[in-house]
Amino acid sequence: MQIAGFGVEAWLNAHEREATTDISQSSVSALTMAEVTSLDGHGGQQFYQQLNQSRLDYGWIEGSPKFKRLVSGLYTQVPPENVLQTNGATGANQLAIYSLVEPGDHVIALYPTYQQLYDIPKSLGATVDYWHIREDHDWLPDINELRQLVRPNTKMILLNNAMNPTGGLLDRAMLEQVVAVAQAVGAYVLADEVYEPLDGTPFTSIADLYDRGIAVNSLSKTYSAPGIRIGWTATPDADLADRFRKYRDYTMICGGVVNDQLAVLILQHRAEILERNRQIVARNLKLLTDWVATQPRVSLIAPHGISVSCIKLAVPLADEAFCLNLLRDTGVLLVPGSRFAIPGHARLGYCTDTETLQRGLRLLGDYLTQFD
Rank of each mutant, 00 (worst) to 15 (best):
A4Y: 10
G5C: 03
E9H: 14
H15Y: 15
T21A: 09
Q25W: 05
V28A: 04
T37D: 00
G44F: 00
N52M: 09
Q53A: 08
Q53V: 01
S54N: 01
G59L: 03
P65E: 15
G73M: 02
V78L: 04
P80S: 12
N82T: 14
V83M: 09
L84I: 13
Q94C: 12
L95I: 09
Y98E: 15
L100D: 08
V101M: 08
V101R: 06
V101N: 06
E102H: 15
T113Q: 06
Q116W: 07
Q116V: 13
I120T: 12
I120S: 04
P121M: 07
L124E: 11
G125L: 11
A126R: 07
D136C: 06
D142L: 10
D142A: 09
R147K: 13
V150K: 05
R151E: 15
T154Y: 05
T154W: 07
A162D: 09
N164G: 07
L170C: 02
D171C: 04
A184E: 14
L190C: 08
E196R: 12
P197E: 14
D199T: 08
D199K: 06
L209Q: 01
D211N: 12
V216W: 04
S218K: 01
S220V: 01
S220G: 13
K221M: 15
Y223W: 14
A225Y: 04
G231N: 04
A234E: 13
A234D: 10
F244S: 08
R248V: 11
R248G: 13
D249W: 13
M252N: 14
G255Y: 06
Q261Y: 09
I266M: 10
L267D: 08
R270I: 05
E272I: 12
L287W: 06
W291T: 01
W291K: 02
V292A: 02
Q295T: 03
H304W: 03
G305S: 07
S307V: 03
C310Q: 04
K312I: 11
A314M: 13
A314E: 13
V315A: 10
D319F: 03
L324Y: 03
L326H: 02
D329A: 03
V332R: 04
L333M: 15
L334A: 08
P336A: 10
L348P: 00
R359W: 00
L361D: 00
L361G: 03
R362Q: 09
